[in-house]
Design a protein around this nucleic acid. Sequence first.
RNA 1: GGGCUCGUAGUCUAGUGGUUAUGAUACCGCCCUUACAAGGCGGUGGUCACCGGUUCAAAUCCGGUCGGGCCCA
Length: 772
Amino acid sequence: MLDIVSMENKWRDYWKKNNVFKFTKGDKNFSIDTPPPTVSGKMHLGHAYSYPHQDFIARYKRMKGYNVFYPWGFDDNGLPTERYVEKTRNVTIENTPLGDYIEICKEESKKAELELADAWYSIGLSASFNDYIDTSSDFSMKMSQKLFLDLARSGRAYRAEAPYIRCPTCKTAISQIEMKDAIIDTDLVYVNFDGIEIATTRPEMLGACVAVFVNPGDERYKNIIGKKIKVPLYGNEVPVMSDESIDMNFGTGAEMLCTFGDQNDLELWRKYNLDSRIILKNDKLNDSRYLDNIGIKEARKRIIEELKKNNYIIKIEKIKHSVNTHERCGTPIEIGISKQWYIKDLDIKKELLEFGDKIEWIPEYMKTRYDNWVNGLRWDWCISRQRYFGIPFPVWYCNKCGTIIYADEKDLPVDPRLVNKNIKCPACGSDDVQPERDVMDTWATSSISPTLYLTHINSMDMYPMDVRFQGHDIITSWAFTTILRSYLHYNKIPWKKIAISGNVYDPFGQKMSKSKGNIVEPKDIIEKYGADALRFWGSTTMPGENIKLREQDLVRGKKTVIKLYNSLNLLKIISGGKIQGDINIIKSPVNKWIMSKYEKTVREVTGYMDAYEVMKARSALDKFFWSNYCDNYLEIIKNDNEEYRNENIAVSYLIMENVLKMYSPIMPFITEELYHEIHPDSISIALEKYPEYDDKYLFNEENDIDYIISVINSIRALKSSLKISMAAPIDSLNITGDSEKIGRYGYIIKNLMHINNIKITSGENININVIQ
RNA sequence: GGGCUCGUAGUCUAGUGGUUAUGAUACCGCCCUUACAAGGCGGUGGUCACCGGUUCAAAUCCGGUCGGGCCCA
């Protein structure tokens, strides 16, 4: 009996111990840009579905003779890690010195990485786990800072006081990438503005009002456009202006523009070059009148009270309103104004689109999402975060003259917040300097993953990498920022291909989530069905497609594992354990038939694998293995003429081991196990050569035997209808059909179906009847 | 609101102009045959979402409708 769990464990240990997948650079290299999973989360089923996709290709390319660079990384920067540490170690930035806080983050990351690596290893990935990189290491920090300095010196990265998107909960700037829409319940307040009714969801921002906007086509307000009106409570005069973007059906059709109530305010503010009245700073409102450094909710209450007191409120309506939120915490974002670091990208949209075109997208339509994103960019990429654990900016500021002081490249990596290195201002000579306290956005480091990976092995000559694998949910973040950085630093595409994978849903098409209680752990699946079956399930979709978790796919995978095991078992019984014979001269028509089918399968499977269509490759292989090889070929040679015995053994073994090779990228465990039974001296099936298509093994007999098999199927149907065993002997049978073929290959029919005599009648259609 | 994508037996799925629409699973019947009953053989089951158009020919191409999913506003 086959014990799948212990068999898989055995090979996992073996691969690790023998460092089977270590990369050695050669003439023919193939490199994969792997998504570094975050350390704050466990490997979930979505990962267990998508990561094997990279591994299928990695293993295939390795067997096709490439030196495959398949690095491994962990992303342990930023907010998720801080959250994780604050939860597990009960530390906060308020109760812990910065240096200690960072050390604890690193410590926990390291610990989590060691634990997590096992989960990733358990699904049989052939990546370099022995030599992984993580995004918070000195190495990553050095590279990230160095590339940042390159951008800063060339002016691509700049620091500016500008409006920025802020999360009040996380108390940090975020980028357009991190926003998500949400519908919330809110009050729509109708305010009397100098006789004009205005509806607003942000009454607390009244003191920041710099204009009133209406739609130019709105008849109600036509005659007041261009006039000035007074802001209630504050009394300042603001212009009434018009813009197409104003929705006539929202509220009263007249809106106040505040610096800054929301993104639309910001856009109109930029478009018309309006004044600013900043009353909101770091989540506190201060208008030196009604609001004295108080929070947003409190301020809203107070302003509404004041408006009521002075009879400015007409009515208050409860509405559902669409707002932008921070995707990590769900808090509605605010627009703040402060100094942040940006990477300028709005001026190179055209170039970025061209780069998108140069990369092969699998599947192709996923590129559209990238294009839409680039076309819709409205902000330069804000890369500074007011957080603690992350790559620090290698800069100081001179308190005297304001000059930005960049770290010397030879001193990298450097954390200006923690080291005091006698920094002097190069402009004025002052040593009164202060460090930048912000850290970089996690994507600022993830976006240079090809550089990180290739520099790690000292092989930047392999740039661009061959392929990036990632989910479709991060096309606008990871794929986009990587292409952007690659353009800015090297003017090269980061990879030749990008392969996008889909999401995993439960059997009813619902997303898996804790609250729904429909989460399935990969570990449980591996225990029940095996890692091979889990990977098999992962190979049942076309590139980019979402997948539902369905038990039957796992069952099918496990059945395939067992079928492979049993078919080798049968070969051992038939051959008496010996492989013999010569396949250079094939005489048996049945062997000619199976060799033809086999060669065609090799050609087909290889073609699909080259196109990353693993699902089609596997289907073709399944069909050959189950139907042609097991159900028909092996059944026939069990009962074949003695003269073909040695040839049958040779052919059946040859095909068996090549079937194992073709299955091995998908199911590495069972194929390793069985291959070692045939070739005990092999280091690993993963290092063997993939079968090559050879047309010298195509024979005309293929069609003849196909015909004979259809005759056999008819006899099987007959036996089935007679309710007798396939092995039950029949004395005499009349077969109508192609008499020449049936005559020539009648012995196959007789042997397999246990028939003593056959009588042949010529006819168009196959017809079988028993002669009593 | 815009974009992308999908709609094929109970369920999942292949198929992008041309025999009788693929396979899996479920279901029914038979068979323990020199491996495998988690197997084999046979069978039931489909107005290819709907409407219209192009064509000798449409699941496939075009337009529209309805319904899912995702991305972006």
